[in-house]
Structures are given as structure tokens and as C-alpha cells.
Design a protein around this nucleic acid. Structure first.
Lengths: 226, 226
DNA sequence: GTGCTCAGCTTGTCTGAGGAGTGCTACCGT
DNA sequence: ACGGTAGCACTCCTCAGACAAGCTGAGCAC
């Protein structure tokens, strides 16, 4: 099996790391049954409970699946690629580019497909955004993000919605920073653009919706990249 | 056959589920320190090692972070949403729509930014695709997917690349099915469109690149939705 | 062939015992 | 009064051993 022996510190994590290497390295393909806990414990030079916890950790990541009486089986050879990780490490410009792509397309689709309910939701979200402008920065950003989320949802494509949700945490973080830097000077920042966007969606004008959202995102982002 | 499989569910999973509920339910916000192992064990009515394994599982999911000597802390209140799960459950039409969005944008950006190396990679990928057409269906699809991946990579936006990679497994699966249904009649299916796409990227013609990729995806997809 | 039983393996669970790291508090010297 | 430090309580970390519960395949009876 060629497992290196363990050295210091959290043994559980080291054990998990070694097992992960075996799995992602291809030594144990999907469906493989791992050696028994006692065998693994001996190979790694740790106690059985330590091995068990390492297995649990990898099970939490979706790599392993223990079945009582049968053994521990490989469920996948790589962790769910966490898009959010990529987003955190990405540059503002790259993020902005992709966000622009998603939201312009969403605006266009929303204008084509919006239902009465969608329009009502969007208008309510706009109103909440306006009210939140008088309150804390955080509340304002939350309301803004909620509005954009509602726009994407109005496009009626669950895949697009799921995709945008991946961006929400990073987007929120960036916006909070931006709003705090601007201070209270620009309360209800971008209200007119948002109102125009919703109007375009409501009247079913895809071209105008796309243009407005493109300008709006461009404006807020330019302020953020000094 | 509407039988749910019977699952006695190990105590560890039940314990993890209860803890997860506390976390996602908001009882323990991010940063909260959980009660000690012994306390939790008593509360849940299980042994200490069971609690520890449950904590490890949630740590694997990215929800908790144990720190020796200090305690166990809440790192996030919801699991990484697995975009791949959404994709698997999504309809072909929704997937197609988003894939079209990504690839048309990628084609446009690639035409604007491609380097010499990008062009070389794309041309090599095209050649491999041609060769693979004479071999198995699977190899052909793999080569096709590799070509599309190379196109997105040539756009020079890591976020876009990471995003497209989320689609690759689902895309591959769908293509394999399609190619098998078509049989060998259409060997080297879509060769001219792909060649035209690469030419447009190479000569730096964003509009043409976008048009070609749009037609190409449209053509293959229409065959797939009967 | 079909179905049953059983032995041997596996994971599941609990307990008790130390080891090691963290963070707070009270003490002490200045 | 203040700052530094030693001690302490609390926490997670690791191990060993024991038994329970579940799975799998071999062998057997029909």
C-alpha cells in the first residue's frame, strides 16, 4: 500500500490526507472496498478510532461510504469541486465578467418570460431595497442582492439560478466593502437604474433590460476597481 | 415499486443530522462555540466517540472546525451547495440554455484574447477529435469535450473555466448518449463547424466565433431533444 | 436448483484512561 | 496601579479493549 507513517499534530487530519491521496491518486478506484479499519490503523500507525474519524471526514466530503458489516467503499475519486473556492480566489475583473454574463442573460430571459408573480416579487424587492437604504449598510446590501437574485429567478431557468447562487456570498462581501467605503453619501445607490431594469422586464423589453443591467453593473463595479 | 429502502441509520448519522439542524436552523450562528463533547454526548444520548465522529463528518462538509484545546466552532451555516447536483437534476433545455450562454461568451472572449499557444492547443484538439472519430464513441466524445474545454480556457477567465468544468460530466454523459444513438453514420460529426470556430478564434473574429459556436451547439442539441 | 444456517469477517458503539493545547484568572514583583 | 507569569480548568486528541450489529459466502438439507 506504501503509506507513509504519521508524524505530529492532528493525526486524524494526516490520516485523512493520506487516504485522500490514495483515492484521488487512483490507487483505489470508485467502488473499491478499503482495507479493514484494523488493517488501516496498523498501516498508518494510529489507533482504530483515529482511522474511523478520518473515514468519517472523507465520508462528509462525499468520497467514502461506510456500510456496517460490509466495509468502507469509495464513492468518488475527487471532492465535489467547490466553485465557491475558485470564486474566493478569483480576481475582481474575472468575477465581474462572469457576473455580467449571467445577469445580462438573466435580464433578457426575464423580460421574455416573466410572469405576473415575478413582476410583483421584483417590485416588492425594489421597495425593500429602498427602505433598507435608510438603515444599515448590511441591510441595504442584502436587499440589493435579494433583488438581483429575484431577477435571475425570473429568468425561469433553475440552472441559471443555481449558478448565480454560487456567486451570492462573494458578491455580497464585495458589495458590503464597496458600500462602506462610499459611506452614507450615496444612499439608495443606483435606485434609478434598478427601477428602469424592473420596468423593462415588466414591459417585456429584452434589449432594454439587458442594456440597463449591463450599465448598472458596469457603474457599480467601476467604482470598486480603483 | 414505491418502497423506500429500509435504513436503520447509524447513530453517527443521526447525531450529525441533529447537529446539522441546529446549525442550518440558526441556533448556532457562524463563530459559535459548540458545547463540549461530553455535554453533547449526554444531550444526544450517545457515547463520546459517536459525537466525535459526527463532528468529523460535519467538518468534512465544511460546517464545523474543531480546534484542540479551544473547542468546536461553526465555520458555515450551510453545506457547500453542490452545483453538480443541480445539473444532474436539470432539464436538458435549461442545461442547453446555460451552456449556450457560457460557450458563446467564451468563444467571443477567446477570439479577442487568444494567444499563439491557445491557437496551437485548439488546433491540436481538433486534430485529436478527427482521429478519435474513427475509434470508439467514448473517445470521440472525450476529444470533443476536450476541444470545448480548450475553447473556454482560451477565453482566459479562470472563473469561466471553473464554471464550465462543472458542466463537463453532465455534458459528456449527454453527448455519449447522443453519439450512440446516431451510430456510425455521422462519423466526425460537426467537423466543419468546429474547424470554422477555431479559424474564427485564430483570426480574432469575435462575432463570427460567437455565431459559429451558437449554430454548432444548436445543431447538436436539436438532434438530442426529440 | 432453492432456501436455510452458520461462521467469520466488517463496521458500530461505548467506556475509561491519559496526553496535549488553549485561554482565563489570580498572584506576584516592580 | 500595572504588567508579566504561573497555575488551573477546560477542551479536544489519541489509544486500547470490549461487545453489539450487520453483511457475505460457504456449506448443507430439501
Amino acid at each position: 500500500m506504501s503509506l507513509r507513517s504519521i508524524q505530529p499534530s492532528p493525526l486524524v487530519e494526516q490520516a485523512a490526507e493520506q487516504l485522500r491521496e490514495q483515492i484521488t491518486g487512483g490507487a483505489w478506484p470508485v467502488g473499491t472496498k478499503l482495507p479493514g479499519e484494523t488493517t488501516l490503523a496498523a498501516s498508518l500507525g494510529v489507533g482504530r478510532s483515529t482511522v474511523r474519524e478520518a473515514i468519517r471526514a472523507l465520508a462528509g466530503e462525499g468520497l467514502l461510504q461506510p456500510r456496517q458489516g460490509a466495509g468502507v467503499f469509495v464513492l468518488a475519486v475527487e471532492s465535489r469541486t467547490d466553485l465557491a473556492d475558485h470564486l474566493r480566489k478569483a480576481s475582481v475583473a474575472d468575477l465581474y465578467e462572469v457576473r455580467m454574463m449571467i445577469e445580462t442573460r438573466a435580464a433578457r430571459l426575464a423580460a421574455e418570460r416573466r410572469t405576473e408573480a415575478d413582476v410583483a416579487t421584483l417590485e416588492a424587492a425594489l421597495e425593500r431595497r429602498t427602505r433598507a437604504a435608510r438603515r444599515s449598510h448590511e441591510e441595504f446590501v442584502d436587499a440589493d442582492v435579494a433583488l438581483h437574485t429575484a431577477l435571475v429567478a425570473a429568468a425561469g431557468n433553475p440552472v441559471l439560478t443555481a449558478l448565480f447562487e454560487q456567486f451570492v456570498p462573494t458578491l455580497r462581501e464585495g458589495l458590503v466593502e464597496m458600500v462602506k467605503r462610499l459611506g452614507r453619501a450615496d444612499e439608495n445607490l443606483g435606485h434609478r437604474a434598478h427601477a428602469a431594469l424592473i420596468a423593462a422586464v415588466a414591459e417585456g423589453n429584452p434589449d432594454r433590460a439587458e442594456t440597463v443591467v449591463s450599465e448598472e453593473i458596469g457603474a457599480t463595479t467601476l467604482r470598486r476597481i480603483p
